[in-house]
């Protein structure tokens, strides 16, 4: 077996070049697209802010109780003002980025693990596996996303890990459906047939030949769904079943601000802007990726 795979060396090189060119293509398309580049910079800054939040503001300012500082408007001391418990909004927005970044990345990663596996199984094996997986996925498309998230959250209970699980559990069906059709269109290519002809096994064909070439639509979708996951976390926390107080989740901050919409509008202003700018960055990147990677728009498979 080892000897045979040495003989496959040239073929593998072909597959690898293909893989690197995918990432090269992504980078080239982002570099040309100014809004997407801006989005990418914002995302990188956000990740750094999330990692180094303790160095920017101490945690106590975000979750403590300061009776003397209640509902201060934005000013020199508190650049975004304070909320009804005297907590600094700026500190809460900074620490809230941790929640959003964690949920966004981990929930989509979770959905990807299940979705890619199921999608590959359905698309590559067809037959019974395909039918079972796709009928199971159909159930997830039969009710609205947000209601599904609410139902799963009530079962699991509130908290960061459960928000991640709930969103991942819903995402897998969308990723599986997308990847399945992508695998369908890739596996009829000659190079897959050629790999099989020289004795490559199913696992090797999937990992070396199908995965790299079928990933493009999933990459576009994932970029978009990190944004969706961040909005969903905020929505669940806003409804009171996601993150729990005193967590500095942006959605929770918006829920708190509802009682002070006219007296302290800054309370609703900044967390909302934080969500908008974050999600917008992911949308811009996803749009650029779609323009360059989507075979339908590019006109070639």
């Amino acid at each position: 077996m080892l000897k045979i795979s040495k003989g496959l060396h040239l073929r593998d090189m072909g597959a690898k070049t293909n893989e690197t060119s995918l990432w090269r293509e992504i980078w080239l398309s982002l570099r040309k697209n100014k809004p997407a580049l801006l989005g990418l910079v914002v995302i990188i800054v956000l990740v750094f802010v999330a990692i180094f939040a303790p160095l920017i503001v101490p945690c106590e300012e975000a979750i403590g109780f300061y009776p003397k500082e209640i509902l201060r408007p934005p000013g020199a001391q508190h650049i975004m003002g304070t909320d009804d418990l005297g907590r600094d909004i700026f500190a809460r927005v900074i620490w809230g980025s941790r929640v959003s970044v964690e949920v966004g990345i981990l929930a989509v990663a979770f959905g990807l693990v299940i979705g890619l596996f199921m999608g590959a199984l359905a698309g590559y094996k067809e037959g019974l596996a395909d039918t079972l997986i796709m009928r199971a996925a159909d159930i997830f498309f039969a009710f609205p996303y947000i209601l599904g998230a609410i139902a799963v959250m009530t079962v699991l209970g509130p908290g960061l890990e459960n928000v991640i699980i709930a969103i991942g559990v819903l995402e897998w069906a969308y990723i599986a459906r997308l990847f399945r059709s992508s695998v369908f269109s890739v596996k009829v290519n000659d190079y897959v047939e050629a790999a099989r002809a020289i004795g490559a096994g199913d696992g090797r064909i999937l990992l070396k030949h199908i995965f790299p070439n079928a990933m493009a639509p999933v990459i576009v979708y994932s970029a978009m769904s990190v944004g969706t996951a961040i909005i969903t976390e905020a929505a669940l926390s806003f409804l009171g079943i996601g993150m729990q107080p005193p967590s500095p989740s942006w959605g929770l901050m918006l829920a708190d601000s509802r009682a002070f919409m006219s007296s302290a509008p800054w309370m609703m202003c900044f967390p909302g802007l934080a969500i908008l700018i974050t999600v917008l960055s992911f949308v811009l990147v996803a749009d650029a990726l779609r323009d360059s990677l989507d075979p339908k728009l590019k006109g070639a498979v």
Binding site: G227, L254, M268, V283
Partner: peptide, 8 residues
């Protein structure tokens, strides 16, 4: 609008 949280 696509990036805007509906509740906000």
């Amino acid at each position: 609008l696509v990036a805007m949280p509906v509740f906000w």
